[in-house]
Amino acid sequence: MKGFGLALTLIVYVFARKFYQRFSYPFFVPVLTSTVVIISVLFISQYSYEQYMKDVSPITELLGAAIVALGYPLFKQREVIKTHVVPILSGVIAGTWLGIESGRLLSKAFGIEELLVYSLLPKSVTMPVAMEIADEIGGIPSLAAVFVMVAGISCVAIGPYLLKWLRLHHPLEIGIGYGSAAHVLGTSKSLEFGEEAAAISSVSMTLCAINASFLAPVIIALFG
């Protein structure tokens, strides 16, 4: 059944979106619900994973165009970004450092082996850069990609409760938080809070990626 994967993904997405519009709880974000449903269907039907990935290649191919499209809110909100350069930079630097340090210290506390720790550290950075960083500091790139996904999904599912509880609801705070912690997934979440938050999130995501590429090897060299 060639093309089953593509049809499945499109249909599940349409329903997941409708479902989220009806029940807008953070846990029901379309990425998470569609992923759970699709994985379940693939398991139950014993449809091959390789074939699924082949089926959905048109969507995967368009992901590149989708990320390019994030430059549009960035352009429309360029004045807002210019005004807030200092808070954005401070948030991004704090976020990158916290991400690497908290990952390193928690792993140490739990006694995780180094190969795994090095794959986990760049989790908040956009996937291709995270894989590159993992490779650079001695981790496994494909494993790093999995942690990037875990970070992204958990952040958009749990994050909104935390931000609400701590009353962090300024577009600046939302954008920087999601962009620094959950890369592109966080940026697409920020879009729910408006164009301004999304633009700030795109900037934070990009700056975090650049910042982490420099910071991760330095922290590893200093503290191991």
């Binding site: 948030g91 976020g95 991400g99 792993s107 986990l120 952040c155 994050g159």
Partner: peptide
């Protein structure tokens, strides 16, 4: 660890800002 560390980044960066 991944989830905890990610949420620390979310709150830490937003709060710094």
């Amino acid at each position: 660890i991944t989830i905890l560390s990610t949420l620390i980044v979310l709150v830490g960066s937003a709060y710094t800002t």
